[in-house]
């Protein structure tokens, strides 16, 4: 157990947890930020995607001890009212089915568009391949990302 001071969504939190506790469980179980989901625990499905200094990371496989002074952003932190342009595009294309993987998909898409504002279809496919959707919403995800890229 150790004390960590972490920056999440522009707030500072002090947590006393095991060194190897993945950021995912710190967010969900300790801080109560449950928009970030557990899916596999091995960075294979992307449901737990958050940003570390704007870059997408899989929080299920990212130990709290590795966060340091980096700024964490979760789905709760990307917009005030769920109205980030990517979230709006998700609503416009009615992307979700069950919705469980979608916060991870959105976080990954936001990071992609930040590093590459005009991705090609192929670039989107490559960037999003770590995010699984069992309901099969891939094509609407792609369309929603393309619509933001064009805007």
């Amino acid at each position: 157990m150790a004390n960590y001071s972490i920056q999440v969504n522009d707030k500072t939190y002090e947590v006393d947890v095991m060194d190897d506790m993945p950021l995912l469980w710190v967010l969900r179980d300790v801080l109560g930020l449950r928009g970030t989901k557990y899916g596999c625990g091995k960075a294979l499905c992307g449901a737990c995607t958050v940003h570390l200094d704007g870059t997408a990371i899989r929080s299920c496989s990212f130990a709290i001890s590795a966060v340091g002074k980096g700024k964490i952003t979760t789905i709760e932190g990307i917009s005030a009212n769920g109205d980030h342009p990517v979230q709006q595009a998700w609503e416009q294309y009615i992307v979700p089915q069950c919705g469980y993987c979608q916060t991870g998909q959105i976080m990954n898409a936001v990071a992609l568009l930040k590093s590459n504002p005009q991705p090609s279809e192929q670039e989107i496919e490559q960037a999003m391949q770590g995010n699984l959707c069992r309901c099969g919403t891939y094509n609407r995800i792609k369309a929603a990302i393309l619509s933001v890229a064009k805007a």
């Binding site: 449950r34 928009g35 709760e76 769920g82 979230q87 009615i94 979700p96 979608q102 916060t103």
Partner: peptide, 22 residues
């Protein structure tokens, strides 16, 4: 075509799945 009622909650991360109950 009617959008699903849970759409906004899902995209904003506030939708409550089983795993989110406390």
């Amino acid at each position: 075509a009617t959008p699903i009622v849970d759409l906004h909650d899902i995209v904003s991360g506030t939708a409550v799945f089983g795993i989110d109950t406390v």
